[in-house]
Measured scan of single mutants.
Amino acid sequence: KELVLVLYDYQEKSPREVTVKKGDILTLLNSTNKDWWKVEVDDRQGFIPAAYLKKL
């Protein structure tokens, strides 16, 4: 499984997104879309802008 580091706080703006904090380490589920990556946060799955994440 691939992990990503959150570079900036992000507040979800729709039900398909998730809220994260800078410094969080998340499981990356899908990065095929270059703009929005799907991650897992506390048993929730959702999207975050790829620019907010860095692969570890």
Rank of each mutant, 00 (worst) to 15 (best):
K1A: 13
K1C: 13
K1R: 13
K1T: 11
E2T: 12
L3D: 04
L3N: 06
L3V: 08
L3K: 13
L3M: 12
V4M: 03
V4P: 00
V4S: 02
L5W: 06
L5M: 10
L5R: 07
L5A: 05
L5C: 07
L5E: 11
L5G: 03
L5N: 02
V6L: 02
V6S: 02
V6Y: 00
V6G: 01
V6F: 00
V6D: 00
V6I: 04
L7W: 02
L7H: 02
L7M: 08
Y8C: 14
Y8M: 14
Y8H: 14
D9P: 07
D9M: 03
D9L: 02
D9S: 09
D9N: 08
Y10I: 01
Y10H: 04
Y10Q: 01
Y10T: 01
Q11D: 15
Q11E: 14
Q11K: 14
Q11M: 10
E12Q: 14
E12S: 15
K13L: 10
K13I: 07
K13V: 08
K13N: 10
K13C: 10
K13M: 13
K13A: 14
K13D: 06
S14Y: 07
S14V: 05
S14C: 09
S14N: 12
P15C: 09
P15V: 09
P15E: 12
P15Y: 09
R16N: 15
R16D: 12
R16C: 15
R16H: 14
R16A: 14
E17P: 06
E17L: 04
E17K: 05
E17I: 03
V18I: 14
V18Y: 03
T19F: 03
T19P: 03
V20T: 04
V20L: 03
K21R: 14
K21M: 08
K21H: 12
K22W: 03
K22E: 07
K22G: 07
G23K: 02
G23A: 03
G23V: 01
G23H: 06
D24H: 08
D24R: 11
D24W: 14
D24L: 09
D24Y: 07
I25P: 00
I25Y: 04
L26T: 02
L26Y: 05
L26H: 11
L26E: 01
L26S: 01
L26F: 04
T27L: 14
T27E: 11
T27Y: 12
T27P: 15
T27W: 14
T27A: 11
T27I: 15
L28C: 11
L28W: 01
L28K: 01
L29E: 03
L29Y: 03
L29P: 00
N30G: 07
N30H: 08
N30R: 06
N30W: 07
N30Y: 06
N30L: 09
S31V: 06
T32M: 13
T32N: 13
T32Q: 12
N33Y: 09
N33E: 09
N33G: 09
N33Q: 10
N33D: 15
K34F: 09
K34L: 11
K34S: 11
D35A: 12
D35S: 11
D35P: 02
D35Q: 14
D35N: 13
W36S: 04
W36G: 02
W36K: 03
W36V: 04
W36T: 03
W37D: 01
W37V: 02
W37R: 01
W37Q: 01
K38H: 12
K38I: 15
K38W: 13
V39M: 01
V39S: 00
V39C: 08
E40F: 06
V41T: 12
V41A: 12
V41Q: 09
D42T: 09
D42H: 12
D42Y: 09
D43Q: 15
D43R: 10
D43C: 14
D43W: 08
R44E: 05
R44S: 06
R44K: 15
R44D: 04
Q45R: 11
Q45E: 13
G46R: 05
G46K: 04
G46C: 09
F47V: 07
F47W: 15
F47M: 09
I48H: 00
I48P: 01
I48F: 02
I48T: 07
P49S: 03
P49L: 05
A50F: 02
A50S: 13
A50N: 04
A50G: 05
A50L: 02
A50R: 12
A50I: 04
A51D: 12
A51Y: 14
A51C: 14
Y52L: 11
Y52K: 06
Y52R: 05
Y52F: 15
K54N: 07
K54E: 14
K54T: 12
K54Q: 15
K54A: 12
K54R: 14
K54L: 12
K54F: 10
K55S: 07
K55W: 07
K55R: 14
L56V: 12
L56A: 04
L56M: 11
L56Y: 08
